[in-house]
Design a protein around this nucleic acid. Structure first.
Lengths: 231, 231
DNA sequence: GCCAATGTCAAACGTACGATTCAAATGATC
DNA sequence: GATCATTTGAATCGTACGTTTGACATTGGC
């Protein structure tokens, strides 16, 4: 039979959910299999049985979030380009297509917003370190797609300039997610989601201004295209 | 009588240097006491003898870099404000005062540039997590100082806006340092330091555009756009 | 020469980890 | 209801960790 990629119920799903929560709270390296199985009221052996190893569990936790995020990024970018067919879309829309999917997984997860942001931050902060190659490929493909999209809007920028500016945007997003709860002082009465919405708007405007800066930049020494890993 | 804060020679210094290198390469949590003492050709007990504990060693490694960086940041900011006494300095200069000290410690360290960048990235990525309170205070003071400086140049921005934009700049810097060696493909013949110089210039311009977004950018900023690229 | 103080060393301590084992339990299929 | 693969449970494995110990070596001041 065909195996469902992500279990929708049962103890395996429960392990994933619990692990996810603990990872978000304390970081991947600070959580042991005993912590997870204990919190999930399962046996110590459960993780190794269901996921082969601790690393297998981590990989599945990561993939479960990363894959939909990347797919939504690409879908949103397609939508933006289709809507502006022919014309050049505004930078803000491309950036939003790139960043908003990182916030859009809330409904599919049982995590509270705060924990979810931290988890996504952790995942992306160490993306590329020990990921399944399939995921690496998806990340690289997504990144390349966005680089091309930005290149069309900013045709005078070199490939290097483009890559670095995208990298800076990613850094801002990751840093924001990772430290969100220590920076954000919630005004009473507003939900975390709507506060994050405001913050995302800030980041999008900030990034759009940075991406579009100058535009009359001198030619670069050497163009080193592609072979560039980002997320 | 008065103890020297950082040993200039001897096995204690050697332990610090070796630990620093290993931490930069693999991250703080992935390096054991045994790894360090083995690489330093010292005994396992040496770290606990000299630094009290593994955490004590980490703290000293961090402080040794963090303190000079923060001090240089403040000194540079003072210099900028003094030079523009009365007038409002360009954003680029404040940002450079904030970011360049992260690259300026090369001469005081035996680390290769690549490792040093990774170490600084790691340090700042988890700044505030388990640091001595004296260092936390220094970081907070530095941050506050820069927030005020930016506030003077961007008087129409709210405190929240200001804080977030600074946060985005930090994120870009941290992300750049952490992933520098996996992103940068060095053109043959150019040193890592000069390549980093170019990248820092990119980040400064990107950040200045982002910081000033939405403001009626005055003419004084336009009059010397390349003034800080005098390397 | 002596004696603290200081530093080094091999060895071991207790703990926690990821992984494994194997028997019992469970559940689906016939 | 018997059969057999799947899933659990408790106990345990070997390893690696940070730390401690106590004996030994080195040093500098008197």
């Amino acid at each position: 039979m065909h195996e469902v990629p992500f279990p929708q119920s049962g103890p395996k799903r429960k392990l994933l959910d619990v692990a996810e929560e603990l990872f978000a709270e304390k970081g991947f390296e600070a959580v042991s299999v005993r912590d997870i199985t204990q919190a999930a009221k399962a046996n110590v052996a459960a993780i190794n049985y269901h996921f082969g190893s601790r690393d297998g569990l981590i990989a599945m936790v990561v993939v479960r979030h990363l894959v939909p995020v990347c797919e939504e990024r690409l879908a949103r970018l397609d939508a933006v380009e289709k809507r502006w067919a022919g014309k050049t879309p505004p930078l803000e829309e491309i950036i939003e297509a790139m960043l908003r999917p990182l916030l859009g997984q809330l409904r599919k997860s049982d995590l509270s917003e705060r924990l979810f942001y931290k988890l996504i931050g952790r995942i992306f902060a160490q993306a590329g370190e020990g990921m399944p190659s399939s995921v690496e490929g998806l990340l690289a493909k997504t990144n390349d797609r966005f680089k091309k999209a930005f290149g069309k809007v900013l045709p005078t920028l070199s490939g290097e300039d483009l890559a670095w500016r995208i990298h800076f945007v990613s850094g801002g997003m990751i840093h924001m997610l990772s430290n969100y709860d220590s920076v954000q002082k919630l005004p009473a009465g507003s939900s975390a989601a709507s506060a994050m919405e405001v913050t995302l708007g800030r980041l999008i405007r900030f990034s759009a201004a940075g991406m579009g800066e100058g535009m009359a930049v001198a030619a670069e020494l050497v163009e080193s295209p592609q072979a560039f890993f980002d997320f």
